[in-house]
Computed example of a mutant assay.
Amino acid sequence: MRTVSGADGTTLAVRTSGPLGSGTTPVLLVHGMGSDHSTWRSTAALLRAAGRPVIASDLRGHGRSEHTTDYGLGTFADDLRAVIDALGVGQVDVIGHSLGAHAALRLAMDHPARVRSLVLEEVPPMPRDDADLAEEITMGAGLGERVRGVAALLRNPLPVLRSDRAVGEAVQRQFAAADPYWWDRLARVRSPALIVSGGSRSFLRPDHLRALAASLPGSDFTTIDIGHSVHRDAGTEFNSAVATFLGIGRS
């Protein structure tokens, strides 16, 4: 692990593999809330085997990155830009899960030239209006998801133990306000995107993710009916979708 300075000087922990200056576009991996870079082990192995440089950062308040008082959704995106700037990388492919996918999408909105392509796994959209708020489209978890989460915690408790409990409250507060302008800004994204839904077993309704995909120019949509943590609970299927989308293994 190495450390770099985030958008406001917050210390961020980053793991890299492969030569970043080789001319091959690196892949930036961004974990979800309560997790860290280690959640991407199988995906990172796939990418390394294909000769792709990999950057895996711990979001602020997670893993070995610094805890802070600013957990703004825009700040997470600014941190991603700071990471690739610090590493001297001009453009990246980004694979993000949940909060990390939301941050990756904001990065693509704000700095479209820096993102070549996006894989957005279970990305929570901002509520558009009172109807979305009433549905609590980004909150909650079913029994099955909670059980799978407990099992994952027992296997590897460190990411949860290291994460700042204040992140969840701060993020939920921001998703509790309608933001139709966020949807308007999707038109700024230039990169092709793959939206991965966890299907009916996820607390994020697939129809909302389909609406997001329809609002993103040049996006694809796929469902792997396993729940919110697709890469964790259906790693083979997830990695296959990633490989196809990124063109890994093609002659």
Rank of each mutant, 00 (worst) to 15 (best):
M1N: 04
R2D: 07
T3Y: 02
G9M: 06
T10Y: 01
T10K: 10
T11I: 14
V14Q: 04
S17R: 12
V27F: 06
V27I: 00
L28K: 08
G32W: 07
G34D: 05
S38F: 01
R41Q: 15
A44M: 05
A44V: 09
A44R: 04
L46S: 07
L47E: 03
L47V: 03
R48G: 12
R48N: 06
P53T: 09
H62M: 02
H62V: 06
G63I: 10
R64L: 13
S65K: 04
E66Q: 13
H67I: 00
T69A: 14
D70R: 09
L73K: 02
L73W: 04
D79P: 00
D79N: 02
D79K: 06
A82R: 02
D85Y: 00
D85K: 02
A86F: 07
L87S: 04
V89T: 01
G90Y: 04
V92G: 03
L99N: 01
H102Q: 11
A103M: 09
L107D: 01
L107T: 09
A108L: 09
D110M: 13
D110K: 12
P112N: 08
R114E: 14
V115A: 04
V119Y: 00
V119H: 03
V119W: 05
L120N: 08
E122L: 08
V123E: 02
V123K: 06
P125F: 06
M126R: 12
M126H: 11
P127I: 04
D129C: 11
D129F: 10
D129L: 05
A131H: 13
D132H: 12
L133V: 12
A134H: 07
M139F: 15
M139N: 14
A141S: 14
L143K: 14
L143D: 13
V147Q: 11
R148D: 14
L154S: 05
P157C: 13
P157Q: 11
P159E: 05
V160M: 14
V160A: 11
L161D: 03
R162W: 03
D164H: 03
A170W: 06
R173M: 09
Q174S: 08
Q174C: 06
F175Q: 07
D179Q: 11
P180K: 10
Y181W: 15
R185V: 01
L186P: 03
R190D: 14
R190G: 09
A193N: 08
L194F: 01
V196H: 04
S202W: 03
F203G: 12
L204F: 10
L204T: 12
D207S: 15
H208G: 02
A211R: 15
A213Y: 10
A214V: 13
S215P: 06
P217F: 08
G218P: 07
D220I: 07
D220K: 09
F221A: 09
F221W: 14
T222N: 11
T222E: 04
T223C: 07
T223L: 08
I226P: 10
I226M: 07
S229E: 15
V230K: 11
G235C: 09
G235S: 12
F238S: 07
F238L: 06
F238D: 03
N239L: 02
S240L: 08
A243I: 03
T244S: 12
F245K: 03
G247N: 08
G247M: 09
S251F: 10
